[in-house]
């Protein structure tokens, strides 16, 4: 039996996060940059205590214990997502134009003409779920945005979450999956249409104010 969905392409300098169910997941295991930094700190007697998001400062706060036992804090500003954008562009070496073309052809059979036109021209299209009534904005190389429509045309829709999911694998710190961008969009679309509950369950739900949400 073969690997039905193929084997992801490793890229030098990028960490590939593979779905643990895949039999080859162990081959791609590598320490993350944070883990390596943590080990270097530990050698010098420093210890990482905690990290959390601060909405007021729009930053990730890290609490680190010094060798003398005192806990100090540091903050990583997270105002924009340019690092994600650049990492995504870097990961594009793993995809081919032919794959993307085939994925576009498949997507063309799944959505209406005007939605496909939106997708080709703007990289995103809208679809409302008949079950939940939620409106999904499927985007190429960005998480899917879920909007709750209020019914009032004067009121702007509420953003519920940004759903991020990649079949097989993705490159850490980017929005790039192992598959070509439109294949990821097809996976999002089919899961939303086929099993919306499972779709929410398997996705990483980024709050709209975080840079990872891509908003």
């Amino acid at each position: 039996m073969g690997e039905w969905a193929g084997i992801p392409v490793p890229i030098e300098g990028e960490r590939l996060i593979v779905a643990p169910q895949m039999p080859f997941a162990g081959l791609f295991e590598r320490k993350s940059a944070n883990e390596i930094a943590g080990e270097k700190m530990a050698e010098k007697g420093w210890r990482w205590r905690n990290s959390f998001w601060c909405g007021r400062w729009r930053a990730i706060i890290n609490l680190i214990e010094r060798p003398d036992g005192k806990v100090v804090g540091s903050w990583e500003p997270a105002f924009h997502h340019i690092t994600h954008d650049l990492a995504t562009m870097g990961a594009s070496v793993a995809w081919g134009l032919e794959q993307e073309q085939r994925a576009l052809q498949l997507l063309g059979t799944m959505i209406r003409h005007h939605a496909m036109k939106h997708y080709v021209l703007t990289g995103m299209f809208l679809e409302q779920s008949p079950r939940s009534g939620l409106c999904y904005v499927f985007r190429r190389l960005k998480p899917t945005v879920v909007l709750k429509l209020t019914g009032d045309p004067d009121e702007s829709p509420r953003i519920l979450a940004s759903l991020c999911m990649h079949p097989i694998a993705y490159y850490e710190g980017s929005w790039a999956g192992a598959m070509c961008p439109t294949d990821d969009v097809i996976a999002h679309l089919t899961l939303m249409r086929g099993d919306e509950h499972r779709y929410w369950k398997v996705c990483n739900q980024h709050p709209p104010y975080r840079p990872e949400a891509g908003l």
């Binding site: 039905w4 593979v18 895949m22 079949p167 996976a187 990483n204």
Partner: peptide, 10 residues
């Protein structure tokens, strides 16, 4: 039908 591989999150 469409088959989607297990997901690795995102």
């Amino acid at each position: 039908a469409v088959a989607v591989a297990p997901t690795s999150g995102g």
